[in-house]
Design a protein around this nucleic acid. Structure first.
Length: 303
DNA sequence: AACCAGGACACAA
DNA sequence: TTGTGTCATGGT
């Protein structure tokens, strides 16, 4: 066993709850065991662990420049300055209090798009299962450290475009199979250039994404927020609807369009971040089962 | 064992 | 514009 310095690093960061972030329904490939969180970032096997001074990372091969991982984890983002832009109201104070250290990742656009096409009316655990099956069957096997279980790259758009709808349905994705297949063909053919969205306005990028079948406003905003980092993209799913309704319109029922307009005006320049706090707050603290299910994570916060 | 899940879409009124 | 049925699957 050789200790190899070039395969590990500690990324210094504070106000970062790794466990909450990796399990908050924005990425679906992270698995927790005794040795930490194992996943795939930029085509590399990665294992992460929370330390008081930051995030410890280990890879399967030598790394000279870790910018790809810092970018994915967004460790250079100053969380406090983002939280400071949240509206100063009771719901957001409660959400921030309860979800301290939750972060937004910066994911690969295709993986993010494909994953959220598969997400509609699925529980997060099921999305994880479907994505795992998809990677095992159609993704390229990646080098892993000796003794570690095999991992696979997320399939390229061209990998999926070559499959049949039946093969995709065998991954338990049901009616979402033709949606994924169409999107894969669209990307693989160059008909839609995901890279071009990076320099576009939010609404223009959103229009392009929603032109795909199976991609509506919600899924588009997930991709715009979690992969492209558009700060005001605001995905409204059933949990966020429940949060907006119960926390901001407790008296009488607000219609969906009313909630959407509210979300576009109330949450400020980092509305997407606020959305993630609302989402995680509703799911972990105010769900019927209550907060008992959530494990405490050993974090060190500066403030 | 019902209920529901990080929805989208076609279609009715 | 707003409401309803449908799609597929399985976790809780």
């Amino acid at each position: 066993m050789i200790f190899n310095d070039a395969r590990q690093i500690v990324l210094p960061v504070r106000d970062y709850d790794l466990a909450a972030t990796l399990s908050s329904g924005q990425a679906f490939r992270w698995r927790l065991d005794d040795s930490g969180w194992t996943g795939v970032v930029a085509g590399s096997w990665v294992r992460l662990r929370q330390l008081p001074e930051g995030i410890a990372a280990k890879t399967s091969s030598d790394v000279t420049n870790w910018s790809w991982l810092r970018d994915y984890l967004q460790t250079d983002v100053d969380l406090a300055s983002i939280l400071a832009t949240f509206p100063d109201d009771e719901p957001m104070r409660a959400a921030v209090q309860a979800c301290r250290g939750v972060r937004l990742l910066r994911q690969d656009p295709w993986e993010c798009l494909a994953s959220f096409i598969l997400s509609s009316t699925k529980q997060i655990v099921q999305i994880q299962q479907i994505v795992a099956m998809l990677c095992e069957r159609f993704g390229q096997p990646l080098p892993v450290p000796a003794g570690a279980p095999p991992v696979f790259a997320f399939p390229l758009a061209s990998d999926i475009a070559d499959r049949s709808e039946g093969e995709l349905r065998d991954c338990k994705m049901g009616f979402r199979a033709p949606y994924l297949l169409d999107a894969a063909k669209c990307i693989a053919s160059g008909n839609l250039a995901l890279e071009s969205l990076r320099s576009m306005e939010l609404t223009a990028a959103r229009d392009l994404l929603t032109s795909l079948s199976g991609v509506g406003r919600k899924i588009a905003d997930c991709v715009l927020l979690f992969a492209y980092g558009f700060p005001t993209a605001f995905p409204v799913d059933v949990w966020v609807v429940k949060g907006l309704q119960e926390l901001y319109f407790p008296k009488r029922r607000a219609r969906p369009d009313r909630l959407l307009r509210f979300s576009e005006t109330h949450f400020g320049p980092n509305a997407g971040y606020a959305q993630q706090y609302l989402f995680h707050y509703m799911r972990t603290q105010r769900s019927p089962r209550g907060p008992t299910k959530i494990e405490p994570s050993a974090n060190t916060f500066s403030s």
